[in-house]
């Protein structure tokens, strides 16, 4: 299985690559300026986090929009990757009333595919100033925290998944399980 991590300039982009590699996937980091047609044969994409404010700095998010429009494979958006996905499909994003940095309690509302076999409540690590206020039409929110209503979402029509927190860092509990669940969804999509 081949999974590319689209680099949106996150501190933990390389961590995403490492977790995927450790799960036995052929993983590669690609710049977000890579044209979609140059991606070639790929089974899934991970849109990394990064410093850009997706509303005012869309240019720094490169070709993420093209990937979301043209790729039919599963995509996992993380942090800014999730915010971009939400904004791209008509959802609403903006500065969070209270930022979340470091340890945050996550409450899972919908087990869905991403959270299968994981407790309903656990600690995740975050690093965000902005958040998704309203999920786009055709998407469902899957988890929340005390101060952030949308900590995870998925499309009801396509294999698009997204999380606001960072499953790729060591301190997030069950982070590897979330990636494993995503890869399972990729397997199903391939069949």
């Amino acid at each position: 299985m081949r999974v590319y991590v689209v680099d949106n300039g996150g501190q933990w982009t390389h961590r995403e690559w490492r977790v995927l590699r450790d799960l036995g996937v052929e993983a590669r980091i690609v710049p977000n300026t890579t044209p979609f047609d140059h991606l070639g044969q790929v089974d899934a994409l991970v849109l990394s986090g990064g410093a850009p404010d997706v509303a005012s700095e869309a240019a720094r998010m490169g070709n993420n929009g093209e990937y979301l429009d043209r790729a039919d494979c599963p995509i996992l958006g993380i942090c800014a990757g999730m915010q971009f996905m939400a904004a791209h499909f008509g959802g609403r994003t903006g500065p969070a009333a209270r930022a979340e940095f470091g340890r945050t309690r996550l409450y899972v509302d919908e087990e869905d595919q991403l959270f299968v076999g994981i407790p309903k409540e656990f600690d995740v690590w975050e690093s965000h100033n902005d958040e998704v206020k309203d999920v786009p039409e055709g998407f469902q929110a899957l988890a929340h925290s005390e101060t952030c209503a949308v900590e995870a979402m998925r499309s009801l029509r396509r294999p698009l998944y997204a999380v606001q927190f960072h499953p790729e860092v060591e301190n997030t509990a069950f982070g590897t399980d979330i990636f494993r669940n995503f890869l399972r969804a990729v397997e199903e999509w391939r069949r």
């Binding site: 680099d7 949106n8 300039g9 501190q11 982009t13 390389h14 977000n32 990064g50 410093a51 720094r60």
Partner: peptide, 13 residues
């Protein structure tokens, strides 16, 4: 890895 990640580059602060 953390040395070059935190030092920043074209896309990273």
């Amino acid at each position: 890895a953390p040395d070059w990640i935190e030092s920043g580059d074209g896309v990273r602060d």
